[in-house]
Amino acid sequence: MRFASHRDIARAVERGVRRAGLPVAHSAGFSPHPKISYSGGAPTGAASEAEFLEISLTAELDPAVVRDRLDASLPEGIDVIEVADLPAAAAPRLEASEWRVVLPGVALDDAIRAVEAFLAAAHAEVERLTSKGVRRLDARAGVVSLEVDRRATAEAPTGCAILRMVVRHMAPAVRPEDILAALRHMSALEPASPPLVTRLAQGPLCTDAAAAPAGLHGVAALGAATMAEAPRPGRRDAEQGQVMETCLVAGDATTAGTAPASAYEQLPRGAERPGEAGCAREPDERDRPNARDRATEQRVS
């Protein structure tokens, strides 16, 4: 699942919803699409234990039933952790993400030195190749906290260092790969093979997060939201009860209950796989010289 792009995940979820027989609402118009929205998906190449999405349904359903059915309908590697039914007004507050980054072949001391140098810097300009060309951004600006996880490093197989970081959601987005690029640039920190990036949590940012030195708990896990059914008939599109989903990140639920959680679902469990941004572009318009292949490709509608 680590290698799946946003679009891959979105397609899988749409199909899962159909398989589960959920009465999903569709957009109006020429080509109706199921109303499913995603916020801040993890980049391709990164695993995630905390993804969120919203599904609009046309009927009132027990969130637990939705959870079970959807979970059973999704491919292995995408698990629905929790579903909550929330009023549309309760917007999500996904302000930051916590990430774990495994750096194969990096010594503990080197990792500590690099992290210290990074934190000491006021700015860390990096370049990222995007579809619109090279983009420059300040990786330091997004970092709420960054630390070498000594305990995890000690427990991990030898020859890798493990980082934990809390990164603010901002525009332009700062991704773990940008921070790793800065570490590489500033301290020549070079893993032997691609780093394994995993998103551990998403949520509101605690005000004291930046100042919390030991705890990497800057991200508050979302609590189980109250199941408030809210179908509001009236408006044309309002026969939809907004069934929304939420995820629970294991442990550390410092603000459980207070999060204005809407509805989210936790997505990939992402087995430990290496990561870095892959490409998720459209499939190539196949330009086959074989005229005979057309017979199977032509469609009437």
């Binding site: 290698f3 391709t44 691609p194 998720a280």
Partner: peptide
């Protein structure tokens, strides 16, 4: 696995 991050459309 370690090669996949280096290629196009690893999925």
């Amino acid at each position: 696995e370690p090669l996949l991050p280096l290629v196009r459309k690893p999925i």
